[in-house]
Structures are given as C-alpha cells and as structure tokens.
Amino acid sequence: MAAETIRLDVARYRPEEDAEPVLQSYEVPLRPDWAVLDGLAHIKDHLDGTLSFRWSCRMGICGSCGMDVDGEPRLTCGTFLAEYGAGPVRIEPLKGFPVIRDLVVDIDGFLAKLSSVRPWLVREGEEPPLTAEYAQTPAQLDAYKQYSMCINCMLCYSACPVYVLDPDFLGPAAIALAQRYNLDSRDMDDRFDVLNLEEAVWGCTFVGDCTRVCPKHVDPAEAIQRYKVTAALRSVLPWSGR
C-alpha cells in the first residue's frame, strides 16, 4: 500500500527572479503526528533545498514559525497537517508584512514598535543592592502575567485589519507589552505618551481577531480596551495619573 500523502501549495518568492509570489506544489507524507512545519522541513530536506522559512524551537515558544495556513495566521509547529483532511494546504507568508523571500517576512518594523513602548521596568531613584528582591504577591503577579506571555510571533498583527490598512498602527502585541509593564506592581510608568495616540490605542476599532488568533492566550484586545479606559480616566481626571 502506498503511504498517504498530502499536497502543500507553498508560496515562493525569489526577489531576483519573481515579480510576485507564486504557489508551488509539493506532495509530502501525511502522518498523524506531523505538524505543517514537519511538512516544510521534509520539502527542504528531501524535495527542494531552495525553500526558505524560519523555525527553531519546534515547541511553540520561540515565535519564529508563524505563517498563513489556508488563510489563517498560525504557528506552523503547533498546527497538525491532519487538521486539513485530504488537503491541499496553502502555506503563505504572514500577511501584512513585506516578504523578503518565500515564507520569510520583514519583522524590523514590528521590533521597532516593541522598542518604542519602553518595554522595561521603569523605576525612580537608585537601584537597591542585589541582596533582596522587590516584593510582589502572587495576586500582583497575576495582574500582568498574561500579558507577559507574548512570544512575538506577530500572528495578531497579521489578523488585524487596522494594521493591514495602516502599517503605522502600534498594534496588539506592542500595546499588550506596554500593559505588561504598566500593570506590574514594580513599574512606575504608565507609557501615556506612547499609548494615548490615534496611532496607538485609539486606532483600535475592536475587531478582536488578535485575541482569537493568539496562540498564547495573551488577549491583546483586552489589553488595548483596558488602556482606553485608563487613558480616558487620566484625561478626565488629572489626578488619576499614577
């Protein structure tokens, strides 16, 4: 009996020769425990060494392997091929980002956004000696924990219509990261200057797809709506700044 296979239609873009991406088809074995990423690795190892894509941890934590699978942004290491029945499965680079090559997209703009929200612990005064930690109760930890789980996979950007229409929109993960520090009991900033902008929280029209596609349950949509309340209160009540 011939082993079962499945067809992968993979977007190829080689800037030296292609004007725009084209789909190329490959037949790969269909095994119950293979993820989409295993299919791509099989192509690269055995069928066509010229296919380029990013991956590393293969356990859903490094955030490298986000791609558009059958029209949905997914982590390819955590998406089983078997989910797609008999196939074929269309695999394209994450939408909303410039494509460098094949399935590899440009993430420098995303990183610049992350950097812009001061994603570090802001404290006033001298740092105490390295003999004792700042106290933080489990409840205080819980207040921001969820927003600290982001793996920077950018699936949420790819799903966000506001971002796709306006690439300058600060976007879900960066705002969630800002909130991760805002809500940390050890932090002393509220990042009002970078968040209270049309290009930042007020650009969000609450589609909620960022939260739906997020593989780590960060719920960036919630982070954004919560900051809208914070910003509104702060604008109305000057003393409510922290």
């Binding site: 800037p15 030296e16 725009e20 410039p98 494509v99 460098i100 440009d106």
Partner: peptide, 8 residues
C-alpha cells in the same frame, strides 16, 4: 539594502 521585498 536587500533585493526588493514584496509588498502585497
């Protein structure tokens, strides 16, 4: 500067 990235 890399070869032209593709913008959809």
């Amino acid at each position: 500067e890399e070869a032209r990235p593709y913008v959809r």
